[in-house]
Write a protein that binds this DNA or RNA. Sequence first.
DNA 1: ACCGATTTGGTAGTGACTATCACGATGGTA
DNA 2: TACCATCGTGATAGTCACTACCAAATCGGT
Lengths: 205, 205
Amino acid sequence: MPEQHSTLRARRRAQTRRTIQGHAIRLFSERGYDATTMNDVADAAGVSPMTVYRHFPTKEDLVLVDEHGRLIAERIAASPAGLPLARRIGGALVDAATALTGDDMAADRQFLLARLQLMISTPALRARHLDNQYALQQAIIGALANDPADPDAAFRAQAAASACLAALHTAMVRWAEDDGRTDLPALIGRALAAVFGDDVVSPAR
Amino acid sequence: MPEQHSTLRARRRAQTRRTIQGHAIRLFSERGYDATTMNDVADAAGVSPMTVYRHFPTKEDLVLVDEHGRLIAERIAASPAGLPLARRIGGALVDAATALTGDDMAADRQFLLARLQLMISTPALRARHLDNQYALQQAIIGALANDPADPDAAFRAQAAASACLAALHTAMVRWAEDDGRTDLPALIGRALAAVFGDDVVSPAR
DNA sequence: ACCGATTTGGTAGTGACTATCACGATGGTA
DNA sequence: TACCATCGTGATAGTCACTACCAAATCGGT
């Protein structure tokens, strides 16, 4: 647990972390996930294998960082309670996608795209990604259905959340297949609209 | 690829397979999944580690056999096309659960319960289970939305399938938490009814 | 300049999984 | 009964992800 001194040491640590992950994603994309060993990643990044494991406990963590889940859950919890569930969840998803793929982060977008393509094509990564999505779904249900008097509310929230996340997943797959050329928030909005009829898309700000 | 000669050799093979899996599930439940090695399983079953790997390519396969998915997809494809999607999918899920947990297979039910409890509590198993469920969802969509003229049909089928599978998952978790004392088909039916309003439960035959 | 904390590196393991070879048992056939 | 192809099984050696455990280098603040 490194404290956030925001000092030189922390910056160097973050830098090596980015270097390691960058080389890892590049090698995974070039030579395949299974064909790349942790030693290969360490050599490419110019560090020892130990350092790789210090920054990323498992090989899968090199691709699946997923700090986005908490952000999305917070956005949903902060959305107005009067709206229908699907709109609250869908809106948060579109907002998050807008924030992650905006024009001001072209480099990050390419990085996200490469990670997504790996996630989709590699069974082990896809499985862990689905587990993360499931955890996110549980968090959404916890944030939306906290009424003990209505036990069915949890079921309805789960149905809405699972449908929204399925739409998100389909949109991400299509976005990855298209090499990120189409607009991700628009894809998500279209997938949501096809399911829920009206436009669930909400403005980013 | 062993041919189904239905002869002595095939029966012996199936027997050793059952023996290995039985001891594996028992050891996993007693001592924990991670705390049990493949050598432990081999020793308990009285075979060599090689034989274990011949029958189960990965450790996870000892718990996740999952030939149920294909059965469910076939059931859905064979259901009357006039019914709403949720009813067709939900009905197939309830039917499958009824067939798997009937009174005539108490031993199998205990086995299924033990495997389910392992799947839920072990991250690696849960992740791979969710991947299997995702594959089933894709199969359901393929069976239900094969109309190229209506691209939104796939989205609607996906929403229905993901909501139904989420309900199934919740019901299975609750069933496992309750050590299988409550009726699984009834749990699934209740979860589905909470989402879709009317009773989606259909008779088993 | 010094000391505690943090980051990194090395060593030696464990355990899942694979490749390859050899042995014995089974099933059909002469 | 004898023969042979096939199949199930076993043993060996190896790769790779991952984990303690301990030493060295570096940074932050006194």
